[in-house]
């Protein structure tokens, strides 16, 4: 269902979509069945003169089974859903790729994303780290491990095309992974309310081929601690955007 709106751009996107579709089919069946019976009963047993209603306690076995049989069938459906959901969950949230292509650090703060890419040497916390604001660049078809950190409040690192979401918690480092499968540029959202500028925290993820990625990396001078993107620095971002936001609200657009 979801792929009609958003491309599946990670290895696990299709798995998550599968769980969603499975649930849609199973609960859809029960929904339409119940709704159908419901409306049929409403039509069939509408009040007619001279037709009294029946006295059914619902306590006898032959009546009760209209409740108990669906009850067991629903349980069976639940098991399918649980198994599928847990498998996907373990794959996305618990397992890590054994040999990640690279590790990246994602730092949330009010109200900007900072991304630390390991430079050409492929290691974080070295001199050639590339720091960007609001733009994450990754190579297609390579497993990445990310570490989420927050400087102030809760944020949520959400990449809809990857079907990926994870809260960012101050005081903790949260690790996860993804592997992009399609090149392109997509949204990164902050999906946990983080204050007044919550709506102004859009990031972009650029998924590019190995050659493009290498070219981008080569174009960056080493040790760019305050890299500039769209002319704003990390420190200035929050304030500038808030000013921009109040401008938005005042100047009708």
């Amino acid at each position: 269902m979801i792929e009609r709106y958003l491309v599946q751009a990670s290895t696990f996107a299709a798995d998550i979509d599968f769980v969603i579709n499975l649930i849609a089919v199973l609960v859809g069946f029960w929904f339409f069945l119940t709704a159908g019976v419901f409306f049929w009963l409403l039509f069939r047993f509408r009040r007619r003169d001279g037709v009294p209603s029946e006295y059914i306690t619902g306590e006898e076995k032959e009546h009760k089974r209209f409740i108990s049989i669906p009850h067991y069938l629903i349980m069976v459906c639940d098991i399918f859903i649980i198994v599928a959901a847990i498998q996907v969950w373990v794959n996305v949230k618990q397992d890590l790729p054994e040999n990640p292509h690279a590790e990246i650090r994602v730092i949330g703060q009010q109200w900007a994303w900072t991304f630390v890419h390991p430079g050409p040497d492929g290691e974080l916390d070295t001199a050639d780290d590339i720091v960007t604001v609001e733009e994450l660049r990754v190579e297609v078809n390579q497993p990445y491990v990310f570490h989420l950190e927050s400087r102030d409040v809760l944020h949520n690192f959400s990449v809809p095309v990857f079907r990926l979401k994870q809260d960012v918690i101050p005081g903790r480092v949260i690790t996860g992974w993804f592997e992009a499968t399609k090149t392109g540029t997509h949204d990164i959202q902050c999906a946990e309310i983080c204050g007044i500028g919550h709506g102004l925290m859009p990031g972009r993820i650029v998924i590019e081929s190995a050659a493009d990625h290498a070219a981008w990396m080569a174009g960056k001078a080493p040790n760019q601690l305050a890299a500039t993107v769209r002319g704003t620095t990390v420190a200035a971002t929050g304030g500038t955007k808030l000013a921009a936001a109040s401008g938005d609200a005042l100047n009708a657009n």
Partner: peptide, 14 residues
């Protein structure tokens, strides 16, 4: 069944 999966928990947050 869960503990089997949990053994593999490599993402246990920091």
């Amino acid at each position: 069944l869960v503990p089997g999966a949990a053994e593999a928990c490599s993402v246990c947050f920091s």
